[in-house]
Amino acid sequence: MISQQVIQDTAYDIMGRAAIDIPPDYRSGVEFMIEKEDGLSKFVLQTMMENWDAATEDRRPMCADSGLPRYYVKVGNEAQYEGGPIGIEHALREATARATHDIPLRPNRVHPLWRTDHNNNVGINAPEIDWSFEPDADWIDITTVHKGGLFGTDYRMLFPGDGIDGIKRFFLDTLLSYGKRGLACQPAIVGIGLGGSKDTTMVLGKQAACLRVVGDRNPDPKISELELELKELGNSIGMGAMGFSGKSMVSDCHIEVGYTHTGGMPMSVHMFCLSSRRATARLFADGRVEYRTDPQWFTPYMRRETTSWQN
């Protein structure tokens, strides 16, 4: 039985890890990009590396826009946990409020109309908690992501006849729109959602950006190829960090798909940022907790195509 207290304390703990420690996959992705840069773009990326070191040394957030802190929960089908799903949601809201004060995170969450701020990143529909499930498992994975909320995302309904050209154009449009002046805080992991219902398109793209690591490839070889092609296209724009002339726009590109309306090909683009903040913990039935920076969110079960699941 996984206790309420362990859930809350672990959810609290990963908030700090996400805010402070840059994930190694993203860091090495940027190290690789610096090699190809010079001038202002190189100065900017090297300064970001210094910032990550300062954050880890001082145990302070690497970026003060600690975004919209939120959780992704994957529950093993065999997991036993105290308090049920309502208990988990309560623990995650408590953890968010405690972590906001203690780390501290910026209390970004306000009412959209009245701008009321509870100063703890908790409110109506906040923090978001996305659920998924995993067969043959008795653990719970909890991931937190802190992503800024203003720039770098767009949605468009494309049609099958628009083809790969349409995808490339919208990809470029979004990167140019938000890349100028570096509003998207690039170089970024770019997530693309293709298909599904319109809301699913947005969710898939967001998860592709935030829950897959640099170097990870979609298991479908043709999609994997498209990921690499779009990454290359983004880096050929001639734009780098802060929108300065450079080559570092896309540290990786991840595509996730969902079966969609026969007449449509909806697409979303999401850019994560220079402080790609994510941290995951696995809570085991015996009370152990293991930490990692790869959320391993997209499992074969999540990408299943058939009516029933057979591993």
Binding site: T47, N51, A55, C63, D65, R106, R115, D117, N119
Partner: peptide, 29 residues
């Protein structure tokens, strides 16, 4: 720079001299 050099800039802050309108505008504003 870069945007997100939050830790480097945080290091440069020696002291909070005062905070005005915390109640009225909230922490962030």
């Amino acid at each position: 720079v870069g945007y997100g050099t939050g830790a480097l800039l945080g290091r440069g802050i020696r002291k909070v001299r005062q905070v005005e309108w915390f109640e009225e505008l909230g922490n962030a504003q």
